[in-house]
Design a protein around this nucleic acid. Structure first.
Lengths: 246, 246
DNA sequence: CGGCCTTGTTAATATATGTAAATGCCGCAT
DNA sequence: ATGCGGCATTTACATATATTAACAAGGCCG
């Protein structure tokens, strides 16, 4: 099976040596059961993770016991990078479905920066893109209605699943509970339910046990009024590599 | 005057060569008047910026014309990194006060990755730390009350101003309007005003034209129930550099 | 088969926050 | 001094969303 490297090669194609090294990282994969933690907030940071299969979530604990899911990770995503700058993890990584991950120790990252600058830079750009995604999400959550948030999330999800080859004809698995969806979008489960139901009634989507089908794409996009434009930067590498003038 | 490099040397001390190069970047600084854009959303990405003096903001436009301020930048911050992965800027950079910045073209970043891996890594870690900050902010906005958001913002701001040497004895400049504060915290100006007033009445802080003084630190922290722990990782560099085992 | 647990659904009520509009304050330019 | 514009402050009112509770549907396990 082809490892899901689409997030890595998005910015720069891997050389033979780089591909070799990347494949080497995948040797010891680990299986995590749905709902189990991969790394808890506050634990020492020993490295990062690569999600080979399944869905995972990054979440933060609030003092009152609730938590906020900050990001849903799909196969091919790198997990835990933000905490690399901290002594103890600032986020909890958790398997949202049964998942398989492999680990990537601190030292390997240092080595990559020293020996494979092209790869380091691809990774760097990939994490910057994550930062953009985070900024966009912050802008929904802060300033839009429940319906917009939900539809924007579904559109984004579909987009990313498609990039990972996990959605066909607007149809994809949707294995998370409404409770988790509430923690992700910052609203109560009851209101998630109301909103989901009324979205269903618009006819734009249809839900079946653990799956979602998008029926009316344009309609969805109209509902997600604040869905951000996509300035995908597949040329980013070239811009940084060449000596373009400022 | 000493350039504000505290955000750069936080993770790794600069070698002579690196310090030399860093100083070279600062040659042509530009002055931006309060309220003026540094770079607008949608413009081509020619590089990043270094904020030498003043406050700046990163914001996203929503389709309905409102905007969400995603981050307030203080002297020493690097601006525009997230958009590096995009062809066109995904964020608007704007001077919140009169500010002075200098530019840092794409090519210089590429060169840095190839020639100064230590510096590249320090920068990388710094942007990961920003990502943590973004995640934390997302968790406030999504799941906490107006009072918590406001106090958490003030605490974080004070913390960062202190790191930049811009706050003494809990006293610091506060040059942004309540309108901007609302766009930052995702609430209406009226509610900002209400909340600010009632925070004032608790006696934890006192406001005077354009300045804020924190009177009761512990009280503030109690109000900001969700203020996250600080897992500052000044040892991050060492962890990545040495061959620590996973 | 029957119970238990998770998940989804719906209703009734409470409340935090938004919206609209008016007022006052202060600095600044004429 | 006068008026004007940006900003802070209030008031009154509207509403989206939270909270609590109860119940239904399905999966798992004895």
């Amino acid at each position: 099976m082809q490892p899901p490297f689409h997030r890595l090669v998005e910015f720069v194609p891997l050389s033979a040596e780089e591909a070799e090294m990347a494949r080497g990282w995948l040797v010891d994969s680990r299986r995590i059961a749905r709902g189990k933690p991969i790394r808890q907030e506050g634990e020492p940071v020993k490295g990062v993770f690569f999600l080979l299969d399944g869905w995972a979530g990054s979440s933060l604990l609030l003092r009152d016991g609730r938590r906020q899911i900050v990001k849903v990770h799909l196969p091919g995503d790198m997990l835990g990078f933000p905490s690399l700058a901290l002594s103890h993890a600032g986020e909890t990584l958790e398997a949202l479905t049964d998942a398989t991950i492999c680990s990537f120790p601190n030292a390997a990252i240092g080595r990559m920066f020293r020996e494979l600058p092209r790869l380091a830079m691809a990774l760097f750009l990939s994490t910057q893109k994550e930062r953009v995604a985070l900024m966009q999400k912050l802008s929904w959550v802060g300033a839009t209605s429940a319906m917009e948030r939900l539809t924007a999330f579904l559109l984004d999800l579909h987009h990313r699943l498609q990039a990972a080859g996990l959605a066909q004809a607007g149809c994809f698995d949707f294995p998370i509970t409404q409770q988790q969806l509430g923690e992700l979008l910052g609203m109560s489960t009851v209101h998630i339910n109301r909103t989901f139901k009324s979205l269903d009634e618009t006819g734009c989507i249809s839900r079946g046990r653990g799956r979602i089908e998008v029926l009316d794409f344009a309609g969805l996009q109209r509902l997600a009024a604040s869905f951000p434009p996509d300035f995908a930067g597949h040329d980013a590498w070239a811009r940084l590599d060449n000596s373009s003038r400022f």
